[in-house]
Simulated scan of single mutants.
Amino acid sequence: MRTRSARATILATSILCLSGFTIVWESERAEGEGPVVVATDETRMAAYAEEAWDPKVLPQIAEHEVPLADLRAAVARDAVAAGEQYGFPRDGETSPWNFAVSGEGTIVEAKLESRAAKLQLDTDADGKGDVTVQLGPIIRGTALRDAMPFIVFTDFRDQIEFAKLANALNAVAHSRLTIPEGDVVGQTARFEGVFALGRGIASIELVPTKLQIGE
């Protein structure tokens, strides 16, 4: 009884973090049913990210999206004012501003064979890459998670679960992309996505939510 009570407490806590899962006790399964699949942090966060993507994530990006050229000009005038005007709400003054941007640039470098595949784009016509478009499947950073105002740390069990949510959202972004093939250097790439203003507006690491090349 004590063991079952502990299991119930743990699983109930998991449900508070993510709806949509049904607990079926081993003794309650109908004869002939397959084994119960135990939800891990990874599977629960993956399900959360998939469920939230179309109804919540994409509308937030559309609401906050700004042309990259406009954002650059605003940051050059006053970075704090630009954040307040264009950025997503942030968690404290020490947190970086996260922005949703759209733009286009010429591909000056492409690493497509790596699991951390990426493109370097020249978006200001100086011949140098100034936007890194992360294609994945390995995508660095937590900008996509941190940008979403409906995602609150205290709604999750701990920092480990919260980190896995960031990975899950990045994975959904990757899954929605069509990864280019062949030599794409010199082609035009049009993009939408999210980034954190960490090292400055001159060097952006973008998590893309839309990407179109050469059309």
Rank of each mutant, 00 (worst) to 15 (best):
Gly182Met: 07
Val194Thr: 01
Asp91Lys: 02
Lys128Met: 13
Ala125Arg: 14
Gln85Phe: 07
Asp124Lys: 14
Lys210Met: 09
Leu206Tyr: 05
Phe99His: 02
Ala166Pro: 10
Ala100Ser: 10
Glu113His: 10
Gly127Glu: 06
Leu119Arg: 01
Arg115Cys: 06
Asp124Tyr: 12
Glu113Trp: 02
Ser95Pro: 06
Thr94Tyr: 10
Ala196Ile: 03
Gly87Gln: 04
Thr209Asp: 07
Asp122Val: 05
Gly186Lys: 14
Phe150Ile: 07
Ala196Tyr: 00
Phe153Ser: 03
Gln120Val: 04
Ser203Lys: 12
Lys164Asp: 04
Lys164Gly: 00
Ser203Leu: 09
Asp155Phe: 01
Ile179Phe: 09
Phe88Ile: 02
Ala100Lys: 00
Gln120Thr: 09
Gly200His: 14
Val133Gln: 01
Lys210Ser: 03
Gly127Met: 03
Thr106Leu: 11
Thr94Lys: 14
Glu93Arg: 14
Ile201Arg: 02
Ala171Asn: 10
Ala143Gly: 03
Gly182Tyr: 09
Gly136Arg: 10
Ser102Pro: 04
Gln120Arg: 15
Ser95Asp: 15
Lys128Phe: 15
Gly198His: 13
Ser95His: 14
Ala166Ile: 13
Thr94Asn: 13
Phe195Val: 12
Arg140Lys: 15
Asp183Glu: 15
Pro96Cys: 10
Asp126Arg: 13
Gln134Lys: 11
Ala189Met: 07
Lys164Asn: 09
Thr132Val: 15
Gln85Ile: 05
Asp130Arg: 04
Arg157Tyr: 09
Ala125Cys: 11
Phe153Glu: 08
Ala100Thr: 09
Pro208His: 06
Gly127Ala: 04
Arg157Gln: 08
Val108Pro: 03
Thr123Ser: 15
Gln85Val: 05
Asp158Gln: 07
Gly105Cys: 08
Gly127Tyr: 04
Ala116Ser: 14
Lys164Glu: 10
Leu211Asn: 04
Ala143Arg: 00
Leu169Tyr: 00
Glu113Ile: 07
